[in-house]
Amino acid sequence: MDRAGRQSRVAKLPPRERILDAAEELFSREGIRAVGVQAIADRAETTKMALYRHFATKDALVEEWLRIVAADYTAAFDRLAQAHPDDPRAQILGLARFIADGLPGISHRGCPFINSVAELPDRTHPARRLIEAHKVRQLRRLTDLCVRAGLPDPQDTAAELTFLLEGAQVSVQNGSVERAGERLMRIVEAVLDRHPAAGPTG
């Protein structure tokens, strides 16, 4: 979207959403630590006072931004569960496709979770705790899909798939692997085909 188009869209948003939109853009592009509250307020075309009415601290804004990012991944799991309720293998492949399709978008800015963890070394930080809890839930759902697909050693298989999905995001960010999305899909399929499923267990 060009600058004029973005300004037109953002101008129609309520103040809180304008602030979150500005934070998403600036945090993704420049990093959490490099972006100040004033820069976010300016980008959202509001004031610091107005920003603090919606978010008590910058940390609270960071946490809410990452909560929205996490919700996108949760929604992907939910959409796949609805589209393929009796086919866990299709859900796993669909998740891999979701990650593969998103790789071009993070090739320059990187994964928000990976970048944020690097900038938030304090594991007691609310946003850091949010990321870790999200990753635990995601691995749990992936493990459940492996169980339902009848794959042997579902915990190990889910861990292997997680390494692949997250490794692809890192690799596309640092530019070390070409055609990362295509290769990711091929490797995930190979992992699933290596252990033919016993059949959906519902």
Rank of each mutant, 00 (worst) to 15 (best):
A44V: 02
M49A: 07
L51R: 02
L51Q: 01
A56L: 02
K58F: 15
A60R: 07
V62H: 06
E63M: 11
W65Y: 15
V69L: 11
A70L: 02
A71E: 10
A71H: 08
Y73V: 05
Y73K: 15
Y73A: 06
A75Q: 02
L80W: 10
A81W: 00
Q82F: 04
P85L: 11
D86M: 14
D86Y: 13
D87M: 14
P88H: 12
R89M: 12
A90N: 04
A90V: 10
A90F: 05
Q91G: 01
I92L: 07
L93K: 09
G94V: 11
G94P: 09
G94E: 02
L95W: 10
A96G: 13
A96H: 03
R97D: 09
R97S: 07
F98T: 10
I99E: 00
A100Y: 00
L103E: 04
H108F: 06
G110M: 06
F113I: 03
I114H: 11
N115R: 00
S116K: 01
V117F: 00
V117M: 08
L120M: 05
P121S: 01
D122W: 03
R123M: 06
R123D: 10
T124P: 08
R128F: 02
I131M: 09
A133R: 06
V136H: 15
R137Y: 06
Q138T: 04
Q138A: 06
L139M: 05
L142K: 09
T143L: 09
D144M: 15
R148S: 01
D153F: 14
P154F: 10
D156Y: 15
T157G: 06
A158V: 07
T162D: 09
G167V: 01
A168P: 04
